[in-house]
């Protein structure tokens, strides 16, 4: 992985609040083209919602990684006020395994940077959203093992979200407990749920289980799988 890039993961030392990092791992393969508008609006609503909470906006740090033509980290981890999504873009295949491995590296680096600054850090959330299946299967088993290991050591929490057409067998391999099928048009609700959950999580203590609102309830954003 590009160590050069990860070497840039830093932390705003003037903000001593505990951090809740979030990695948005978004599918940007060619098939996502129709959904880009929804993704863009969803991200904007997500940011606005976090901004409203004066404590959460100091605690939640967001990094956006897309995978399509390539795995790209857009900027760095930033506090929610400084997060701005790039114009959406989609093309190419679905290198999901490479993206997961990259996200895990980024999560590790973020925790290390926080630790070096003496700032407490919760386990980063990796929020994977896809509409397809991995095309880089040779690395898939490696990615699954790495994700499972991170979950077991509580060094990251992975949410695997798929649209109707996604390959849920693969998604369940990486996140048996948190695989969710996205309802059609559920994007805004999903991002709102994400911001609400992060606000709750950023106020808990590290290691605690936080009860999240069930997205499968009738007005939620998930379909029963």
């Amino acid at each position: 992985m590009s160590n050069e890039m990860l070497a840039r993961v830093s932390v705003n030392i003037l903000n001593r609040e505990r951090r809740q990092p979030l990695i948005l791992l978004l599918d940007a393969s060619g098939s996502m083209v129709d959904k880009l508008g929804e993704v863009e609006r969803g991200l904007a609503a997500f940011r606005a919602s976090i901004l409203e909470d004066t404590l959460a906006r100091s605690r939640v740090e967001v990094a956006l990684i897309t995978f399509g033509e390539a795995v790209v980290m857009h900027g760095e981890f930033v506090e929610a006020t400084r997060f701005s999504a790039p114009p959406p873009f989609a093309a190419g295949a679905t290198p999901m395994a490479a993206a997961l491995l990259f996200a895990l590296d980024a999560a590790r680096e973020k925790r290390a940077a926080c630790r070096a600054a003496g700032i407490d850090c919760f386990a980063p959330w990796i929020f994977l959203v896809t509409d397809g299946e991995p095309t880089d299967l040779p690395r898939w088993s490696e990615a699954v093992a790495a994700v499972r290991d991170a979950e077991e050591t509580k060094s990251a929490a992975i949410f695997a979200i798929g649209t109707r057409d996604a390959n849920f067998e693969r998604l369940r391999q990486i996140s048996p407990g948190r695989t969710i099928k996205l309802r059609d048009g559920g994007w805004p609700t999903m991002f709102r749920w994400l911001s609400t959950s992060l606000k709750a999580k950023s106020r808990s203590r590290p290691g605690d289980e936080v009860l999240l609102d069930d997205p499968r309830k009738p007005d939620g954003w998930a379909l029963a799988p």
Partner: peptide, 12 residues
């Protein structure tokens, strides 16, 4: 220019 990363490990 971007900030230098602050953690000792993070100096390219």
């Amino acid at each position: 220019s971007p900030p230098s990363a602050r953690s000792p490990s993070a100096r390219p």
